[in-house]
Design a protein around this nucleic acid. Structure first.
Lengths: 216, 216
DNA sequence: CTTGACATACTCACCGGTTCGTACATTTTG
DNA sequence: CAAAATGTACGAACCGGTGAGTATGTCAAG
């Protein structure tokens, strides 16, 4: 009965909240939790600092909201990779490339995770949502490895988690440590040539590892 | 004049400076640059805040001094690895293990590097000393790879820098992302069993990569 | 349809603790 | 005594957070 139709309204809380989250993501990714300034966020927003507190309550709560939204975004990515049709080795190459490209494409997320680690992941631990992250990628990987072993392509059967870590570490590091690594070795890690070379390498390395029998 | 009887002051500038640097390293590693508090450092020190400014001038300068001292420490580590006597594959295993153990043993250094990356490595770039870091590890690695290829043990000749990155990334990530990774997968990455498993894996992975011919 | 009560969305000005940094006095060393 | 080293107390800006009131939209009663 009650026609709760979506009429055009001047008050637009959803957009306001989303606006705040967008700006806050940038700010916290750029400056960390303690380095991020609420006033700075407020300024870059369509609204005021008071609104940030109205909707999020505190700086930390805002930070947590930012973190949760960021993790929500990658969760969806991990979900729909249809790799079961491909042969194990090809599937693994796709998985590695996807991880690599994702990290390259989302430096803000990488930085937020770094920030969270500096903070000992305390906010993450407090968040049901993130703690219960569906770690479907482990199952996917485990399936690929099992298939590869059965098909005889893979000669080794490590923990899926360890392989995931091998892949993640490289892809993550390339982005997270871009600045220090780049400074020491006088490199620009965002250069396309280097990027594709590294993308190739991490896939080759993971595959070589799996295809080499245990006794080396 | 003053009734200050028993405690006669003893000037010890070197020890004072070192004391400040020790405490500051902990503080900045734990809380970042913006999160680190000068007053907190002063309190944990034998001396006062006044002394921090007397010797280091500013919070940022103190941070830079901390960073430089930390890098100086690892530089010495990289320098004296005598691996030329060992066969290429064994030498590489030693190199990987050394890197792994170093990162595990110096979480504060890892955190400082993370912090510096959040800061886009601006302090590092300003520091002649760090910028001119002798990256001898690259030469060491390059030598090992060349020998391995000549001996026929290695079937592939990648850039030493890329291999260094593959090794570094894994060892670094294990420490830097200990908290988030541990939270998501409900693991304690500092557990000895996991540690040695991972130590084994990264060495195996790097060797597998080098020993597998290019065409996969 | 009008009105007015009520809830949600939003504005403005401001506070008080925190925190980097310093002025100034004092002591130690050479 | 001069210079280096140190202690004490405080200033001033910064910054997270809030009090109090205003606008906007909803809905039901008249």
């Amino acid at each position: 009965m009650s026609a709760r139709s979506a009429s055009t309204r001047k008050n637009d809380p959803e957009r306001t909240k989303a606006d705040i989250l967008d700006v806050a993501t940038e700010e916290f990714a750029a400056n960390g939790l303690t380095g991020g300034r609420v006033d700075a966020i407020a300024e870059k927003t369509r609204t005021s600092k008071r609104m940030i507190y109205y909707y999020f309550g505190s700086k930390e709560a805002l930070y947590l909201a930012v973190l949760e939204r960021s993790y929500r975004a990658i969760r969806s990515l991990e979900a729909d990779l249809k790799l079961s049709d491909l042969p194990a080795d090809e599937a693994l190459r796709v998985l590695v490339s996807t991880t690599f490209d994702h990290d390259e494409a989302h430096p803000d997320f990488i930085r937020l995770v770094s920030v969270e680690n500096i903070n000992n992941a305390v906010h993450m631990q407090r968040s049901e949502e993130i703690r219960d992250l569906n770690v479907s990628i482990i199952n996917t990987l485990d399936d690929i490895i099992a298939r590869g072993v059965k098909e005889g392509v893979f000669q080794r059967r490590p923990e899926a988690l360890d392989v995931h870590m091998l892949i993640s570490a490289f892809c993550f590091f390339r982005v997270s440590n871009r600045h220090t690594f780049g400074t020491i070795f006088r490199l620009d890690l965002s250069e396309p040539a280097l990027m594709s070379r590294h993308r190739q390498m991490i896939a080759d390395a993971v595959l070589s590892y799996l295809m080499t029998p245990e006794g080396k």
